[in-house]
Structure formats: C-alpha cells, structure tokens
Nucleic acid binder design. Structure first.
Length: 723
DNA sequence: TAAAGTGAGGTTTTT
DNA sequence: CCTCACTTTA
C-alpha cells in the first residue's frame, strides 16, 4: 500500500529532501547550525516507515541526551501519526542499558545489576582509594575518576592501559583495577561501563551481535561529531551487518573534545564506509545574515574543516553590538539595560539568553538582574535526581529493591541520624571486607555475634527490620504508593523539616515531587522485559537526572554557559566576557587544537542568535581577588567591522565606579607609571603593572614579573624603570 | 550534630 | 576573592 508522503516533502528544501530519501547505504549529513538537522532525521525515519515500509522495529536512532531523544521520538510520532512502542530511539547509554538488561547473563552481570551515576562512582572510587591505603590528597578521587572514565571511553580495561613509565598513570591504573574488581563483585555498572560492556558483549558474542545486526536495517545517529571511541566502535559493529547507516553532524560544532569526543569520527566515517554519500545542509533558517556572516567569518579561521558555508535568505538584520565595559559590573549593567530596552519594545524576556564561558561569570550578571528585579533562570545547577534529598530517598528505594546495594546502604545508614557513627560503620565495613559480603549481610552477622555497641546494634536492627516490614507492606502496591510509603517511613521528611529556613522547605517539597514523578513514571517501553516498576524507576533516575530546575513557565531571562546553549536558539543573545584568557580560556590558548575548539564554541554561541547579538567584554575584571586587564578576545577581531557597531559609552549605561575616573586612563596619579606598563626591577627583573593604589609618594603598584610572581611595591622605594 | 574553621582550587558536561 | 568540601569543636 502506497502512503501519501507528500506532506513529508512539502516543508523540506532540496538537500534536506535528498537526505531524507537517499538510498545510499552510507550517508553522511553535514548539517550546519540551524539547518534543520533534527527535522531531517525525523523525516527520514518517517519516510522509511511510510514510504519504504520499513518496520519501526528495524530502525535504531541514537542521540546524546535524553532531551534530544524525547524530542526526536515526539517529532517522529507527530509525522507518522502513531505511537511506536517498539521503535528504538534513545541515547547511547539508554540503548546500552537496555541491551544489558536483556543480555545480562551473556554480559557477565547479575540480573539486578545497578547503575552508578557519577556521584555514586565518585564515592566508590574514594572508598577504593582509601582501602588501598593511598593518601586521597595526593591521589584525588576526582582525578582518578576522570582517568578511569577516559580509559573506558577509549575501550580500555585496566589491563589494556599503557602506562609507559608514568608513575601517576601506573598508580591510577592500579586503582582502576581494584575498582573494576569491586564493580564486578557487586555487579555495578557506571556510565562508561554501560557502553564498554555492550561493546565487549557484541564483539565477543557472535550470536548476540548477529541478532542485532539482522534486526537493525537502518541506523541513524545524531551529533556524530560528539561520538567517542567506544561509541564509534559500537555503531561500527552494529552496522557491519550491512545496515543503512546515516550519521548527522557538524564538525564546526564539536565542543566536547575535552571529554573524549572525536570529531575526526566524521572523516573516519567516510573512509571506513566506502562510497559514503555526503550531503551538506547549508541553508540556515535561524539567524539574520549579519549574524550568519559574522559566525562564518570567525569559523573560517579554523584549519582542517570539512568545508561548509551557511547562507540564509533572511533579511540582513541589525549589526552586532560590541560593548567594551569598564569592568564586569559595568558589563552586567549594560546587559541588563539592553534587556530592559528590549522589553520596552514589547518583547518578552524568555527570548533572551545571556551566555558566558564559565559558570563563575554568572554571579555578577545574576546580581545585576536581581537589582532590577527581573525574572531569570540559570542553567547548570544540580538536577532533580542529583539533589541530596532525592538521592537519599532513592537510596531507600534501592535498598528496598536489593539489600546488597552497598552504595545505597552507606548513604542512608545514618540519615536521618540514628546514632550510627563513623566507628560503627568502620566495623561493618571491615566485617564486609573480611567475609567478602555486602554491608547489609555484615550487619546481620555482627548483630548475631554481638560485635557492636549495644546502642548501635539496636539502632541497626531497627533500621533493618523496617525494610522487611516496608517490603511486605508495599508488595502489590502501585509504584507511586510504594514510593510514598517508603519516603514516609524513611523519616526523611521529618529530618528535612527540622532544617532551617528555605532550604528544608524546598527539600520537603522535592520529596513530594519525587512521589509525583513516581506517579507519572512511564517505563519507556521496556515491556518485553520482566522488570519490576521499582527497578525501572531506579534505573531511570540514574540515567536521566531530569531538568536543571523545576520548570517554572514564567517568562524569564536565560543564563547559561556557551556549552549548554548548544542546540538552543533565542531572538536576543548576549555573549559576555569576550576576553583573552576567559574566552578563549587561558588554559586553551597554548594548544592550537584547544584554541580551535574555543573558536567553535564561539561559532556555536553566535549562531544561537536569531535576531540580535551583543558581544561584551570588560577592560578590567576581578578574578581570584586581583584585577585583570584582559585584552579583547581575538575572536572579536575576526568579526568583520562592517557587521558590528561599537556602543558608545555614556549612552544608556553610566560608567560610574567606586574608583576615581583617572583609573580609566590607567595612569598611576603623580607617578611615571600606568597600568599595563612594562617595568624593570633590580632584583625581580621585568614585569607588567597590573594594579595600583594610592598616589604620588604613597603609590603602590602590583607588578606581575616574568618569573610569574606578583608583588606589591612602593613606587617611592622600588626603583622601577619604565621600559 | 550543627556551627565554625581550614585549605585547596577556580573551564566547559552528559550519561 | 569566593566557594566548596572537609575537619574540628562546643
């Protein structure tokens, strides 16, 4: 039966249509910012189903974030007008998880294996470091966690790590090994492990591999430039069965190289898969031509691009406003003033985004917004399932599901406080280690032999028996009531109620929101697996930490880092802190590759803007307690002058400042020195004047010497010479 | 068991 | 300089 698919076509341009209907076995779509990349994937899936009569069951669509995967599924279902329960559309991690739940046995896991989120993983690693007798100030668990994850991203087990004479790598690999053994023993799977284990499963198990190779006739991958090694290899194994493989990405928007993403995977795709058809989506539907041309001009400075130039038939639009602020307060004031102008023109606040390179910059901006009592929403805090009170409640649920969950046990054994201190826990841990059993079992044994202080013992018995009653009381209850009862009995609500002020109240609110989340929880079509709702809820919480903030649908200014702005669009965008050392960040300036990534980040930031873009920088910025005089970002010079307009000072924003106006010129009053001046000192050598206070005979200057020491010196005594 | 003190660290983040 | 994690202390 032929289905009318004209609707699929109507809204697509030619390259988009070519991508959607391509019959090539291997297809690479280079999709520029705002060129309709999600639309192309969604329509292609719809096309395959409606026009080519491909069973949704045979299609695999992979994205990076849960949000993207939800959006994708939603859009596809909108087009095909039906729900597709058996269609696999998910994140790499979600899909891997699903495969492991199905093939736990072949993968060498217990049926009830638990997922460690990064905080759980951190705690486990910390415990491992301690148990190995290592000093955790010398061996920071964070760094080891990073190391281990990096190895896993690169498909390396501890035995595969090449340490090559590097003492640190050697030691960290040892920790990796012990961590590996612990996870094996307790059947714990961290995020990296989900992928690595699936990769190893497919690679070593012919039967499972063949099954999925036969099943998936079409594989579609979004944001291909963000794939890391293990993800690439995983896809490769699946596609090697002869599936049609479409990857969509943009090398110019690769901003996650620092966490293992390899944008080379785009090039690699074309060499690994012969006769790959390449389609470029270069028409941008988002931004004015001014913004687009500026972004193009900036990204042109990068080497080794796949080649792509965005164009638009939209109007030219307003020039980009450049503002050189006196300091960061002035910058923030200017931004807020401009937003008020926007509002006065009848525009709305949720059309506005303020972007910055690093989170620390948000505070000054936040304060300026607060002063004008404008509503704002800041991205980047803890997400729902990452909050302490929620993790505590989830630990109760995890323990209810499986008493062997040590991570959960440790978390809640003394929360709320029940008189079980560090000593008692040490005894329990020692027992568990000695007998190689879980903490829960160790408690049972210790109680039997009276190996604990009477009070602690009693308290633990109470704690443990409460789980047994809870279990029998919640059997056959729907998930929502189960969660409700578990939280009620945990004592967490009472505990947080006692907390002072606002904090305790929001925590109690969050706990009841968790009950709400349980009520609304729909297992994402895991139906073929016989898994309890509770377990699915627990896994869901680990794999999808939820939104950054509870969504208030009030109109608000959006504040976020350039990284988190990727994929979003706003009519009005501010990019702040456009300064050397901040953006590009000082840690990225030396390495050409990292510098190129910074430039891509700039490109991403600029292309977020639909109508109007502001770029601001501060001549002076307080950083780590001292004043910095950063030159404007090199990216600013890469924007053609004819596309910009310099905002004159004394306009809508005043330059008021606590310090005297002479500071603007940078001259140290009644001396021969000025800020930024190079000077030489008899003992310390050459340096640059960073700051000053006082004047004339009392003037002191702060000099940053080339030996990279900074000193405050009295001008009257220091015998500084101008160079 | 919470409050006060100490010390390190300060780029970007998803799963 | 400010924040955060962690330790010490009343």
């Amino acid at each position: 039966m032929r289905v009318d698919v004209s609707e699929i076509f109507e809204i697509l341009n030619e390259p988009q249509r070519n991508a959607v209907t391509s019959e090539s076995k291997n297809l690479l779509v280079l999709a520029g910012a705002g060129s309709g990349k999600t639309r192309v994937i969604a329509h292609r899936v719809a096309w395959l189903i409606k026009a080519e009569n491909i069973n949704p069951h045979s299609i695999l669509t992979v994205t990076f974030t849960n949000k993207a995967s939800r959006e994708m599924r939603g859009r596809i279902e909108d087009i095909v007008q039906e729900e597709m329960g058996n269609f696999w559309c998910g994140t790499f991690h979600g899909i891997s998880h699903r495969l492991l739940r199905t093939h736990w046995e072949e993968a060498g896991l217990r049926k009830e294996f638990a997922i460690l989120d990064s905080e759980d993983q951190y705690r486990v690693i910390k415990r491992v470091v301690k148990s190995m007798g290592l000093d955790d100030t010398k061996w920071p668990p964070r760094q080891i966690q990073w190391f281990i994850n990096k190895q896993k991203d690169e498909c390396r087990r501890s035995k595969d790590v090449e340490v090559a004479d590097d003492y640190f790598a050697e030691k960290m690999t040892e920790v990796y090994k012990v961590y590996e053994e612990l996870c094996e023993r307790e059947s714990l799977v961290d995020f990296g492990e989900l992928l690595l284990r699936v990769y190893i499963l497919l690679k070593s198990n012919e039967e499972v591999l063949k099954h999925y190779q036969r099943r998936f006739s079409h594989i579609l991958v979004d944001e291909f430039q963000d794939t890391n090694e293990v993800q690439y290899q995983f896809l490769r194994l699946l596609a090697d069965g002869g599936a049609c493989f479409m990857s969509v990405g943009d090398d110019d928007q690769s901003i996650y190289g620092w966490r293992g993403a390899k944008s080379e995977n785009i090039n690699r795709f074309t060499t690994d898969y012969k006769n790959t058809e390449i389609i470029r989506l270069e028409q941008n539907y988002r931004s004015t031509s001014v913004i687009l041309n500026a972004a193009n001009a900036v990204i042109k400075n990068n080497q080794g691009r796949m080649g792509k130039e965005l164009w638009t038939d939209q109007k030219e639009g307003e020039p980009i406003s450049i503002y050189s602020a006196y300091n960061e307060d002035d910058e923030a004031r200017y931004v807020v003033g401009s937003i008020q102008n926007w509002v006065n023109q009848g525009r709305s606040l949720d059309e506005v985004a303020i972007l910055y390179r690093s989170n620390a910059q948000s505070r000054v901006l936040e304060e300026a917004i607060l002063r004008e009592s404008l509503p704002y929403k800041i991205y980047g805090g803890l997400r729902f399932y990452e909050r302490a009170e929620i993790k505590n409640a989830m630990s109760y649920l995890r323990l209810l599901y499986g008493r062997e969950d040590d991570a959960a046990f440790e978390r809640v054994i003394n929360i709320p406080p029940r008189g079980i201190g560090a000593k008692t826990i040490d005894i329990i841990r020692a027992k568990a280690a000695e007998k190689n059993i879980s903490l829960w079992k160790a408690c049972e044994e210790l109680i039997d032999v009276e190996g604990l202080a009477a009070r602690a013992s009693q308290s633990i018995q109470g704690f443990m028996s409460s789980f047994n009653t809870l279990e029998s009381d919640t059997r056959d209850l729907p998930l929502k009531d189960l969660v409700d009862m578990a939280i009620e009995r945990s004592g967490l609500i009472e505990y947080h109620k006692k907390e002072a002020g606002e904090k305790g109240r929001t925590r109690v609110e969050n706990l009841s929101e968790l009950v709400g989340a349980a009520r609304d929880f729909e297992p994402d079509s895991f139906d073929e697996l016989e898994e309890s709702a509770l377990k699915m809820f627990i896994d869901h919480a680990a794999l999808d930490a939820g939104e950054t903030q509870a969504s208030e649908h009030e109109s608000a200014i959006q504040l976020m880092t350039l990284h988190s702005a990727k994929g979003l669009e706003f009519p009005l965008v501010f990019i702040t802190g456009f300064e050397e050392g901040l953006f590009p960040h000082k840690l990225s300036i030396e390495d050409p590759n990292q510098l190129q990534e910074e430039r891509r980040l700039c490109y991403v930031g600029m292309t977020r803007s639909m109508e109007k873009l502001y770029v601001t920088h501060a001549e002076m910025r307080n950083l780590y307690g001292s004043e910095n005089f950063n030159p404007a970002s090199r990216f600013l010079r890469e924007i053609p002058d004819e596309l910009t307009v310099e905002v004159r000072t004394g306009g809508n924003v005043s330059r008021t400042s606590k310090t005297s106006s002479s500071r603007v010129s940078g001259e140290v009053p009644d001396t021969n020195f000025k800020l930024g001046q190079r000077v030489v000192h008899e003992a310390f050598g050459e340096g640059v004047i960073l700051n000053y206070e006082g004047e004339g005979a009392n003037a002191r200057v702060e000099v940053n010497f080339d030996t990279s020491t900074t000193k405050w010196l009295m001008v009257a005594y220091a015998k500084l010479q101008n160079i």
